[in-house]
Amino acid sequence: MFEFCASPDQLETLRWFSCYLTSGKHLTFYFSFIVVFVLLALAAPSALLFGLISATASRSHNIIIRSIGRTYIAMVRGVPDIAFFLFVPIALDQAFEYIRHKTKCPDITDPVRQGNDFVVCEVAKLPLSSAPQNMHEIYGFLLALLAYAIIFGAFAGNTLFGAMQAVPKGQLETAEAYGMSQRQVFRRILLPQMWVYALPGLSNLWMILIKATPLLFLLGVEDIVYWARELGGAKGSIFTYPHPDWRAWYFAGLLVFYLVFTGVSEWALGKLMTRVNYARTQTARKPKNPKPAGAAA
């Protein structure tokens, strides 16, 4: 990156490190931190969406929809989440390919499972074997993202279901008495009221989600753990920047990164919590100290 980096073995320590830490591989390593943030930015809302759907389904009057919702929510309790991380991507991959196989090559009647193989026709492969390398990487990332959304969606569904149950029944009944339809009650009363009760559980979930991001490594994505292992390993003299085994330092760096990240999150969520609680106590107090008419803005 810098001009003096041309011959690193001549440099003194400080300059050596400034070259070493800006080498091409290290820039990829720093980029993989952005991957973590992208994953969180995409996984959190999609998990919330899955959670919202499943929590609503669990409250349905239709017994089939309700049992589907409740089974999904109950699924993650009792089984380690890492088992799901290993299972969901490969299961989804096979499911997608199977569906494509059925629709794109209807004339092939051979079973898909032959002994220890899973055989689909060439055009059903995902991504196509002719696709460029980065398509494969993006597909892998999307499968991982979907796995996060499904697993954390079930966790979120659990929290949101509890929060929906906690909204006072009287408020919902009042809305119905005003002649609102089920849909209106849901949108105008249940949804806005629920968040207050869901907030502690959801902030807990956010912390768990942050701490689950290194599991990307298990899903074959070249994430921060992958690069920390790769870069930290001992490098012999054939490398431009030879060094002994530094993996402990790299993982110490990751540890600090996560400590700061969870620390900042905790601080921000704490602020949010006090604000919400403040707003709630204010509204609760209102009937006791009615403000003079016209003073409220």
Partner: peptide, 22 residues
């Protein structure tokens, strides 16, 4: 408590392993 609750167990395993090797 802050150290172990604030970081992922997965990273703790890796870090500890590298230390134990060293």
């Amino acid at each position: 408590i802050l150290l172990f609750r604030g970081s992922p167990l997965f990273i703790q395993f890796f870090f500890a392993y590298e230390i134990f090797i060293l």
